[in-house]
């Protein structure tokens, strides 16, 4: 079943990428998806059942809208810091605790943190993220954990866990 889920995902991506429905094109897509399925099937997510739960996709769309808004804010923030003559930066690497458990949720959290205001994930060790912050506004662990990871964790829990 895990293999079939990967096969469906790959075939959908192929059809979108080529965007025509000739029979020859579909056959090539099926062959290519089969090859990918054989090679990488056992590296696919362990909990494939989550792919067939429509509620997760709804939360995914909510998350996407929230994420795009945060991303736009991030860009104006960084553009302001780059363009202002004084360059108001106060960089540092902080240790942030995350409560998510599955690997895919952690990956998405780290990627979201990289795209939001002034933060880059440098490393993930067990349950701690190491985040480079361009402007460290507070050094209290509770405050910065909430500021960096808190807003995404609630939504990501609903999508991936």
């Amino acid at each position: 079943m895990k293999y079939i889920t990967l096969f469906i995902c790959m075939l959908l991506l192929w059809l979108l990428l080529t965007f025509n429905l000739h029979s020859a094109n579909i056959i090539i897509g099926i062959v290519a998806s089969l090859v990918v399925m054989m090679l990488f099937g056992n590296k696919f997510f362990k909990d494939w059942q989550k792919f067939y739960n429509p509620l997760r996709y709804l939360w995914g769309i909510v998350y996407l809208i929230f994420f795009i808004w945060e991303c736009l804010k991030a860009n104006f923030d960084v553009a302001y810091r780059v363009l202002s003559p004084k360059m108001p930066i106060k960089p540092g690497i902080l240790k942030v605790k995350c409560t998510l458990k599955s690997d895919i949720a952690k990956t998405f959290l780290a990627n979201s943190i990289t795209m939001t205001p002034g933060t880059i994930t440098v490393d993930v060790i067990d349950n701690h993220l190491f985040v480079h912050w361009i402007y460290v506004s507070s050094q209290d662990p509770n405050v910065y954990t909430k500021k960096i990871a808190g807003r995404f964790e609630k939504l990501l829990k609903k999508v991936f866990e």
Partner: peptide, 14 residues
């Protein structure tokens, strides 16, 4: 090395 303006580095200990 990080720049002189850096105020905190938790990664070093780890």
């Amino acid at each position: 090395k990080m720049t002189d303006k850096t105020i905190r580095d938790d990664y070093k200990k780890e």
